[in-house]
Design a protein around this nucleic acid. Structure first.
Lengths: 142, 142
DNA sequence: GTCACTGCAAACCCTTTGCAACTCA
DNA sequence: TGAGTTGCAAAGGGTTTGCAGTGAC
């Protein structure tokens, strides 16, 4: 995603546009493998060596609150972030904290239709994510 | 779940049966609301006041490795555990780390059938969990 | 009797916070 | 200019680890 549209996104949320924020947002988008805060920190530091860890955390928090990125839940200990937009679910490795994205429009449709039809008492659904656990075969990346 | 069957489960996994392990396993089963390690610690401490936090963590780790309980992923900062067996998914509150169980055999069947039919290249599915996010209405418990 | 487990406390590590300096609007 | 943001460093809090003592088998 280009810098201009990232800046526009920040402005649309009423956030001040700082180099740090643009770079963090760009890094989360670029690192499409659900980076940890540290991954993002290292990536941004390449272009802006003066940035601090605290700032990265602050910015990530702000971006999550504005729903520009997502915090995703994993089995692991660290938080991971997801800048990917659109319908996707996650493949989680059983024996490591490897994650991959699984795009499946029709599966989302299937579940969405089901949840719409079958109301859940006392709960209003706003979204859902399917975590599929299993094992990656060796040939796969990483 | 009664104590005998808990003990049997431990033995089946080749684990030494200690009062601490039995009580932790019992607590996770009894606390059906996805307790944190601290919840479990407090519960067990009622019956065994000498137990320590470290032991609870150690035992939880062991039980997860033996697949007697599950670690579940939440948006929150703390780890939560799930001793519930059987097909169920989770309702996650958007604005707190409240979790509830959602039993739906047919939804699981729906997704399971889909995943069986549509193979994922480079990945062998062993299970899945649907995280449904949204809002609980006030009338609901808590 | 042996070896694994417990209890305790310190270490660890990721994340948050406080505050002075700075900067975008 | 001034409200909001950054950088830094220290604090915080959940989890892990090391080790001596204990207990299950």
């Amino acid at each position: 995603m280009n810098t201009e549209s990232l800046i526009r996104k920040l402005k649309e949320c009423g956030l001040k546009v700082t180099p740090q924020r643009v770079l963090v947002l760009k890094a989360v988008s670029a690192l499409n493998d659900h980076p940890t805060a540290e991954d993002i920190f290292r990536k941004v530091k390449q272009e802006l060596p003066t940035i601090s860890f605290g700032t990265v955390y602050n910015i990530l928090d702000t971006l999550v609150k504005q729903r520009l990125i997502e915090r995703i839940s994993t089995m692991g200990d660290k938080m991971r972030y997801d800048g990917i937009s659109g319908d996707h679910h996650h493949l989680l490795s059983s024996d490591s904290d490897m994650i991959e994205v699984y795009y499946v429009a029709d599966l989302s449709g299937l579940i969405g239709t089901y949840l719409n039809k079958k109301k859940i008492p006392g709960f209003t659904v706003s979204g859902f994510k399917l975590n599929i656990s299993g094992e990656f075969s060796k040939s796969d990346k990483n």
